[in-house]
């Protein structure tokens, strides 16, 4: 090693490198920086001891604090459940009718139900229950599977054509596609269906065909049978397309919507809350 040369101006050592008369200083790292660096290393060692850190052959070092992010969550959720237990216990015990009658429970159910509705139901039924083509309006009095509290609760639980083993199913036959009726017969019954809501003229044929084929689910008077999920055809409210062509298409090859089954995905208290909320959307009729 050559003699270390000091820079005359700064008093700092030079590296001994020189280019065109310019010498490189060997300035040491600032003291504050170096001590912060050592402190970080020490902190890391402390962290390894306190928290889960190193993988081992059969797992990992758990740390003396026994911290676990999932364990933390479990504890937090337990605390939440405890703080809510007063209310949730009441919801578990009460029937939806009782909840609707109890002013305090109703207020709570409406707030919780709204949150649950917006997260889970609004994508199909709209944020105000206004529905969309193919997704029933919840803010009116026209219910396919019944609009009483217990009916709504059942529909939420089981869904329609969902994965629940007792899910609500109504399967309208494909009168045209499966050739159950002649084209002319379908036309006649479509005209009759239109006439039920006061549109156009229907022939007697149409009425007979309706009574033979459709009345079992839609009722003799076409007002629907909620027990079997047969929609009301007289009120001018249509799930798909209410035009003459739309009705014809639905008789030919019906569309069948699917509502997911929420039992298992939502807990009991949540299902009851959202039921009360949905019931309220149409004014609670």
């Amino acid at each position: 090693m050559a003699q270390v040369e000091k820079d005359a101006l700064t008093g700092t050592d030079t590296t001994g490198h020189e280019w065109d008369g310019i010498k490189e200083l060997n300035t040491p790292l600032p003291k504050w920086w170096i001590y912060t660096f050592y402190a970080c290393i020490l902190w890391a060692v402390g962290y390894w001891i306190a928290y889960p850190a190193w993988p081992t052959l059969s797992g990992y070092t758990k740390g003396v604090l026994g911290y676990s992010s999932r364990g933390d969550l479990d504890n937090q959720m337990k605390m939440v459940a405890e703080s809510r237990s007063g209310w949730m216990g009441k919801f578990e015990a009460a029937s939806v009718e009782d909840i609707a009658k109890d002013k305090e429970l109703l207020t709570y159910a409406m707030a919780g139900g709204k949150f649950i509705f917006n997260e889970n139901c609004a994508p199909c039924h709209g944020s105000g229950g206004q529905g969309a083509k193919g997704y029933p309006v919840l803010a009116d009095d026209d219910w396919i599977w019944g609009g009483k509290l217990a009916d709504i609760e059942q529909t939420v639980r089981l869904g329609a054509r969902g994965i629940h083993e007792d899910t609500r199913i109504s399967d309208m036959p494909k009168y045209g596609k499966d050739e159950l009726l002649e084209t002319a017969e379908i036309k006649a019954v479509a005209d009759y269906v239109m006439s039920l809501s006061g549109q156009g003229q229907a022939s007697d044929d149409g009425k007979v065909i309706f009574e033979e084929n459709c009345a079992a689910c839609h009722g003799e008077d076409g007002k629907g049978l909620q027990e079997v999920g047969g929609p009301n055809l007289t009120d001018g409210i249509w799930l798909y397309d209410g035009s003459a062509e739309g009705v014809l298409a639905q008789i030919n090859n019906p569309k069948h919507g699917v509502m997911p089954s929420w039992e298992g995905r939502l807990d009991n208290a949540s299902i009851k809350q959202v039921t009360v909320y949905v019931h309220s959307l149409g004014g609670g009729m």
Partner: peptide, 20 residues
């Protein structure tokens, strides 16, 4: 999975604003 119906997913892919 299972949260929405197939029809909803199809509609939503084709035109998301139609349903949301």
């Amino acid at each position: 999975g299972g949260k929405y119906s197939n029809a909803w997913h199809a509609e939503h892919m084709i035109d998301p604003r139609a349903v949301v």
